[in-house]
Computed example of a mutant assay.
Amino acid sequence: MVAAGEPVIIILAAGKGERFLASGGTTHKLDALLHGKAVLQHVLDAVKASGLPWHLVRPEGGTRGMGESIAMGVRATPDSPGWLILPGDLPFIQPASLLRVAQALKAHPVVVPHYQQKQGHPVGFQRTFFDALTSLGGDVGAKAIVRAAREKREALELTLEDVGVVNDVDVVRDLGAEQLFRR
């Protein structure tokens, strides 16, 4: 059971997945099968296993980009003490990684997970970033917010031993990363 006041995981699932389709995909990448279930379902299973509250951003017709999706998800959860921004195309993410980011967020305004020096997701933001996150639009994500937090030394660079924080599905061949899948 998760204690009250935990950050909400915002699952971003509103993109068009154009690179996946251009690479030979016959369905949206989030609906593509990996080990017999949809990529997005793997993400949802990990999120549910973490026990953290969550909100799925997948409106009919999509959005104009990641920034708009983030703003939508944060606006839909205005009472949250913070948010973990998780793209829906990370089927290898482990529940323990979500919990580590959430725990670190209690002491740091921004938490950026890394795997072997590569920046990953979910990026965590404390409540103080509500206005900045809800002001995002179009396809511009939260990179500028993270950059500003780094400049103010408000961002924790969190090293995790989970390839799932960086191993996403962008093209059909990414579904062949089965040897990395450890659930």
Rank of each mutant, 00 (worst) to 15 (best):
Leu56Asn: 14
Ser69Val: 05
Gly67Lys: 03
Gly137Ser: 13
Gly138Tyr: 00
Val112Gln: 09
Val101Met: 11
Ala76Cys: 10
Ala155Gly: 13
Val101Asn: 09
Gly67Phe: 00
Ala49Cys: 09
Ala102Glu: 12
Gln116Leu: 15
Asp89Glu: 15
Gly67Ile: 05
Val57Glu: 06
Ala132Glu: 14
Thr134Phe: 03
Leu84Gly: 06
Leu90Ile: 08
His121Asp: 10
Leu90Ala: 07
Gly138Arg: 06
Gly120Cys: 07
Arg58Val: 02
Leu86Asp: 02
Pro122Val: 01
Ala76Ser: 14
Leu86Pro: 01
Arg147Met: 07
His108Glu: 13
Thr77Asp: 10
Phe92Asp: 14
Tyr115Cys: 14
Ala49Gly: 03
Val110Thr: 11
Gln119Thr: 11
Arg64Cys: 12
Ser50Leu: 08
Arg127Lys: 15
Pro87Trp: 03
Gln119Pro: 12
Asp139Lys: 10
Arg75Leu: 05
Leu52Cys: 10
Pro95Gly: 15
Val140Asp: 13
Pro81Cys: 12
Leu136Ala: 01
Met72Ser: 09
His114Met: 04
Asp89Tyr: 14
Leu133Ala: 01
Leu84Ile: 05
Ala107Val: 00
Thr134Ser: 04
Gly51Ala: 02
Arg127Ile: 03
Ser50Gly: 12
Lys48Gly: 08
Asp89Ala: 13
Gly82Val: 06
Pro81Ile: 07
Gly120Thr: 09
Ala107Met: 06
Val111Arg: 06
Pro113Leu: 08
His121Phe: 14
Val57Tyr: 07
Gly82Glu: 03
His55Asp: 15
Ser97Thr: 11
Gly73His: 05
Ile70Ala: 03
Glu151Trp: 07
Gly61Ile: 00
Ser97Phe: 05
Ser69Cys: 09
Lys143Ser: 15
Ala96Cys: 12
Ile70His: 01
Lys106Trp: 03
Gly65Gln: 11
Thr63Tyr: 09
Val112Phe: 05
Gly65Ala: 10
Gln119Lys: 05
Gly62Gln: 06
His121Cys: 15
Leu99Ile: 06
Gly65Arg: 03
Ser50Trp: 02
Gly67Val: 04
Ala132Leu: 11
Val57Cys: 10
Pro59Cys: 05
Trp83Ile: 01
Lys106Leu: 14
Ser135Trp: 04
Pro113Gly: 13
Arg100Phe: 04
Ala132Asp: 13
Thr128Ile: 14
Gly120Ile: 13
Thr63Val: 06
Pro81Arg: 12
Arg75Val: 04
Leu52Ala: 02
Gln103His: 12
Ala107Tyr: 10
Ala132His: 11
Trp54Ile: 06
Pro122Leu: 01
